[in-house]
Amino acid sequence: MSWARIMAPVAGAQGDKGLLASAAVLAKAFDAELACIHAPADMADLMPWMGEGFMGGVQVTALESLKEAAVEGARAVGAMAAELGYARTRVLTLESPVWAGLAMEGRLSDVIVFDDAAARGKGPLAEAFQQLVADEQRPVVVARPGLKVGGVALVAWDGGKEASRAVRTALPLLQKASSVVVAGAPGASSRNFDLSRLTEFLGARGVKATTRTLDGSGDAAGLLLNAARDVGADFVVAGAFGHPRLQEFIFGGTTRSLLNSEGPSLFLSH
């Protein structure tokens, strides 16, 4: 089992450079295709404001501006992708309806990479992050500076289905790690779970892991982040908790704290 296609949604701004560089690090580690998916502002989003059967000068100007921005964004993405120097890079600019195209590309990818801004609800791809995690239930990597494959991975475990899905989908990443630590805070969870059961599961799949029981209650995210710092984790693998409501993903407290932290890169699955 490995990852064959890494997807990086981008808006076509210079701020995408860091995200693409991180996604390239991930793709190179698995000799995977790097799909740079340019998601421009969607002209269809303007239609409800234009009035049925009517287009005035302001509306026409707005549409033309969006078209020009999409063309410039596509050029910028192409240039940034070329600078990566990774032969297995593919660039695709989505057309309206953009969200439908983004969802389909996500379904055809093993992992989707976002940056901190989108994960924290900022920037043009914030809604895409929420929808791909919640509605599409796609595994995502929140790439932070210094993203590294082959280092230390800390797995957050509480025996729940979200954590289980995260571990199973992150197996290729864990199999490349130099060290894997399974961490859990029994006092901060309503579930009964045994950390050693997960190490057995991982061991049967070629991943040698140790356990770390976190003492304390209440703030599970804080306990996990402290443990990540203690072990020098390069990645935290965790289940994403929350529920979709009115196109907004309401994150649970632990997930929200992880997303807003200054900790290592995250691998999340809902």
Results as ranks from 00 to 15, higher is better:
122 K>Y: 07
237 V>N: 01
65 S>G: 12
149 V>L: 13
65 S>V: 09
84 L>V: 04
62 A>R: 11
120 R>K: 15
130 Q>R: 08
188 A>M: 04
74 A>H: 02
235 F>W: 11
214 L>Y: 12
227 A>C: 09
231 V>Y: 03
257 S>I: 00
28 K>D: 11
112 I>A: 13
240 A>Q: 00
100 A>C: 00
186 P>M: 03
10 V>T: 15
48 P>L: 09
205 R>F: 06
190 S>W: 02
68 E>T: 15
95 E>D: 15
251 F>P: 00
225 L>E: 06
253 G>S: 15
8 A>I: 11
92 L>P: 00
150 G>M: 08
62 A>N: 05
159 G>N: 12
151 G>Y: 08
11 A>T: 11
71 V>F: 09
231 V>Q: 05
102 L>T: 01
187 G>L: 10
174 L>Q: 10
202 L>W: 01
167 V>R: 03
62 A>L: 14
12 G>A: 01
29 A>T: 12
223 L>V: 08
232 G>D: 04
141 V>K: 01
37 I>L: 15
86 Y>T: 06
225 L>H: 05
35 A>F: 15
112 I>Y: 00
241 F>H: 04
64 E>M: 08
173 L>N: 08
72 E>R: 15
267 F>G: 06
98 V>G: 04
99 W>P: 00
221 A>R: 06
97 P>W: 05
118 A>H: 13
50 M>V: 02
161 K>Q: 15
185 A>Q: 07
185 A>M: 07
189 S>D: 05
189 S>Y: 04
61 T>E: 15
161 K>A: 14
